[in-house]
Each structure stands twice: as C-alpha cells, then as structure tokens.
Computed example of a mutant assay.
Amino acid sequence: MSTSIYVKAALTALRRGPRAASAPARSVTQTHRIDPSAWARFQRVTSGTVGNRVSPAYLHTLGFLPSLELMADKAFPLPVLGMVHVYNRFELLTPVWVDDELEVETSVSTPRLHTKGAVVDIHVIGRRGGALVFEETSVYLAKGAELIGAAEGEAVPRIEWHAEGRPTAQWKLDPAVGGSYAAVSGDRNPIHLSAVAAKAFGFPRRIAHGMYTASRALNSTDVERESCVWEIQFAKPVLLPSTVEFSLAQAGDGVTTAVTRKTDGAPHVISRIRPLGV
C-alpha cells in the first residue's frame, strides 16, 4: 500500500501556482493491533528498550501513511514531497500496551499562511474500546507555497533550549539509518534513502528522519509516565553520515532534550516531555 501512496504523493509535484486553500472532507480510520514484533523492531532501530508499554514515538507511526494518503488527495492543494516537518505535539492520556487494539483516526487541516509559505496540521486520534488514549498534531511547512483564500495562522510553537554543561552522549549516524527507520515507520520519503533525491531537494546528501532523531532522544530519557505531553521542534536536518551530540536537562517536572550539531552546537531537534496538564 505504501508504494502506491508514494506514487500518488510524487504526482502532487504537478500542483503548481496559486491554488485555493482546501482540505479533504474526510478522515482515514484504521484498526491497529500493537504487534510485539513490530514494536520490538522499532525499538531496536531507535535504540530503545523493549517492554510491554508502548511509547508515543511508535504510536506516531500509526498515522503516517493515512496522513500521506490524505495529502495526496486531489482536494489537498500543496505538493507533498518537499514538505518539512517543523513541530509535533503528542498527548498520551493513558498507557498503551503490546497487543492492545486501537482505532486510529487521521485528518488533515486546511493549510494556513506562514511567513515562509504555508503550514498544515495532521491530526491523529487513538481510541481503545471507544475511549480516547492519545491525540497528536504534526505541523508541516510547504516552503514558498502560494494559496488563495488561506487564513492567517498562529505562529508555530517553539521550545526554549538553554544548553547546560557538556552533552551526555555522541551518536554516530551512518546512511543506513534512513533505510532502517523507513522500514519500521513506513516513512519512505526519498530524501532519507537516496543522495540523488536529497540533492534534488537542496540537501548535499541524504538526511535522517526527524522522527528517528526525536524517537531516539525520547528513548534516551528513560521517562515512563502514565500520561504525558511530548513536544518536538525540528530545526536543522541531520546529514548522513554524521556525528551529533545529545543533551538532557531537567525542567521542573519535565525533561528537555536537544540533539545538536557537533561542530557548533546548532540544534537539530529539541524535545520536551512533561506531565499532562502541566
């Protein structure tokens, strides 16, 4: 299924010139059983431990292909490939366990104006037995996009990061990271898999998935909560191969992490994990 969806997504590159701001008048709902083998493979790729409690990072992947399907819909005005994931907010209301059966509903908002083009929200809701267990909003930026009748949007949230002390770890990331994460997440965007494709989108070589970096950062915190809010701000892409640095700071009841460039400390991904309602 993912191959045909990517073909449709690639064809959205033909959407040129100003188009009316619109969104598909539908959502996609799928039923997923949390498969222990798939969960274990995901954790191995993202350097996490494997237990019965399933992390928000894995739950994020359940809405990815449905979101791609919706953005490939004729009613969606923006070209899909080349869009940049800039922010993510995941609210976990109650623990999710291996073998749980979830009903996952994915929808796409009408794109809104941004100083660099247009942004769109992907909304994902997970239910178990009809009860809400998680909600997620992913914000994507289409640089340079022109839309007719688009509303002015609120600023994309930002997470403050003040480096404290030395980084606690260095990660050496080789080009295989792109293919490994694609296999466990369903995200086969060619900029993560091919140097030629990455160069076509302005990168000197292929780049790591932002959600790979964020998932590995989450696994590095050892934070395990009954409920939480996990926020992610994506900044500079991680070129592959690359060596990056990981830092962690306690902030009240929460934890803030940063994955930064080794040469100058510029942030790649900043994350904040805190109790729900704080």
Rank of each mutant, 00 (worst) to 15 (best):
F234G: 03
S247G: 03
E231R: 10
V238M: 02
E224R: 15
E224Y: 00
P241Y: 06
Q233T: 12
F234D: 04
T256K: 04
E224L: 00
P241D: 09
V255A: 05
E226T: 12
K236W: 08
L248V: 11
S227K: 06
A235Y: 12
D253R: 11
Q250F: 05
K236A: 15
E224G: 06
S227V: 01
V229L: 13
C228K: 00
A249C: 10
R225V: 07
A249N: 02
V229E: 09
A235Q: 14
I232G: 07
G252E: 07
S247H: 03
G252T: 05
P237W: 09
E231V: 06
A235G: 13
V244R: 00
F246C: 03
K236P: 01
S247T: 04
V244C: 04
V255Y: 02
P237K: 05
D253V: 06
S247N: 02
L239I: 03
Q233F: 15
S242G: 11
P241A: 08
V238I: 10
S227F: 03
G252F: 10
F246T: 04
W230G: 05
T256V: 15
V255P: 01
E224Q: 11
V238K: 00
E245G: 09
V229N: 02
T256L: 06
E245F: 14
S227L: 00
F234W: 11
K236I: 12
V238Y: 01
T243P: 11
A251P: 07
E226A: 14
S242M: 03
V255Q: 07
T256H: 05
A235R: 14
V255N: 04
W230D: 08
K236G: 03
Q233H: 12
W230T: 07
E231Q: 09
T256E: 02
V229R: 12
S247F: 04
G254T: 04
S227R: 11
V238L: 07
L248I: 11
T243G: 06
L239Y: 10
